[in-house]
Computed example of a mutant assay.
Amino acid sequence: MLPEIPILMEQYRALLEILPEQHPEYPNMLTYYRRQEAGRKGEDSLCYYLEQAQVPSLHLLNGLRLEHPSSFQLDWLVLGLGFRAIFEVKSHTGEIYFDAKSHQLTRTIAGVTEGFDDPLLQVDRQYAKMRTFLSDHVIYQLPTYRFVVFVNRNVILRLHDYPEYKRVLTAQQVPSILEALAEQHPPVISEEANQAIAHFLVNNHRERMASILEKHHILWDDLIKGVPCPNCSRRSMNRTRMRWQCEYCDTRSTDAHLPVLYYLALLTGNQLTKRLVQSFLQIESGEATRKLITRAGYVKFGVKKGVYYSHPYILAATKNESGHKSQKSGHKTIESGHKIYKSGHEI
């Protein structure tokens, strides 16, 4: 499964929802999230140009992340019947210069120059890992081209003395590049085989999930507890007669806790404990806490003191193989009729 929003990006968004703005790390987390968001928008903007290519039977895979044995991720992988292409997307603006001798990219904006790693070396390393992955899984190899694409219209590329200039593109060049490659490489595999390869790759996709609280030295006690009101956003709603009630605007809700559960699932590596949930929902009964978790469709793992609960969507996205067998909680996960919160939506 290739999710619309990467799990790592959802983790940072979840953290921003329950991290106080006064926390010293809040500005850094906001900057980090916005940087991820800009990168994602850049990848999304390339989709339009990829789809403009007049080439039949192309499969376009965005954000594919494979582990074999170490992980690698491709911004865009294009699977054709006679060729393949990898596109590394950059959203830089300003004046870009590629230095062939130092293998460095420099960007100049308003007289300020910054240095970055050569993205062509990056995409070449990704290709080498993908080639090994395909070979070890006995998947037919095809000529594979690697490009870096700058999607910001305000970028200025200085490539006059760069020997690999043909592999550095603007987004508008992508359709014609794909059409030229298709003409150069006629089909050698069938549409059915190409579709099967795409399906296999997607099935082997593994989303990255990081321990971001530990990484940024943020304590659980630093986070905001309580269930926010879905109407006025104030905390904390009170649990009364199996409903949540806001003491500020009198809004009542049966599922206001679902966003909090999902945020906690993202921040715990998808291993919710009853004690942690009870603390963040601020309810007195441990048994009521357990019922809220299981009725929300979370999957139970472990026994006795080792019990934890996982969100089924995150399980599917990360392909997280637990050492414990799933136990029946009395409620089905997806087909239970209960709402399961994911990124502000029900699934």
Score class of each variant (00 low, 15 high):
249 C>R: 11
144 T>W: 02
219 L>R: 15
342 K>A: 09
117 D>K: 03
288 A>W: 01
17 E>Q: 07
136 D>A: 14
209 M>D: 04
275 R>G: 13
334 I>M: 13
214 E>W: 00
205 H>S: 05
86 I>P: 10
120 L>C: 08
157 L>G: 04
183 E>Y: 06
237 M>V: 07
315 L>G: 08
245 Q>R: 15
283 I>K: 09
18 I>S: 01
279 S>L: 12
177 I>H: 01
136 D>I: 11
185 H>N: 13
199 H>Y: 09
35 R>Q: 14
169 L>Q: 08
209 M>Q: 12
307 V>F: 00
57 S>T: 07
55 V>Y: 04
190 S>W: 01
44 D>Y: 10
343 S>M: 06
306 G>P: 02
116 F>M: 02
200 F>R: 03
114 E>F: 02
50 L>F: 14
74 L>H: 00
32 Y>D: 01
173 Q>H: 13
241 R>A: 13
134 L>E: 07
134 L>F: 04
92 H>A: 07
262 Y>I: 02
180 A>N: 14
210 A>K: 13
65 R>T: 07
178 L>F: 01
79 L>C: 04
261 L>D: 01
226 G>C: 06
192 E>F: 02
98 F>Y: 08
321 E>S: 10
323 G>C: 05
295 R>P: 11
196 A>V: 03
313 Y>E: 12
164 E>N: 14
138 V>W: 05
52 Q>I: 07
65 R>D: 09
280 F>I: 06
174 V>T: 06
174 V>R: 02
220 W>E: 11
142 L>N: 09
225 K>M: 05
156 I>G: 05
289 T>F: 00
258 L>Y: 03
151 V>Y: 04
30 L>S: 09
291 K>T: 07
134 L>R: 05
72 F>H: 09
92 H>K: 07
286 G>S: 07
262 Y>D: 14
179 E>H: 00
17 E>M: 06
221 D>A: 15
38 A>E: 11
192 E>T: 08
10 E>F: 08
222 D>G: 08
137 H>F: 10
11 Q>P: 03
59 H>W: 08
197 I>R: 01
200 F>Y: 12
324 H>S: 12
164 E>A: 15
2 L>M: 02
219 L>N: 15
95 E>H: 14
106 T>R: 10
26 Y>G: 11
197 I>D: 01
253 S>M: 05
284 E>N: 13
145 Y>A: 03
249 C>F: 04
71 S>L: 03
212 I>F: 00
182 A>Q: 03
299 V>W: 05
155 V>K: 10
238 N>Y: 13
13 R>L: 03
102 S>E: 08
286 G>E: 01
57 S>F: 09
64 L>S: 05
312 P>N: 03
1 M>T: 09
207 E>Q: 12
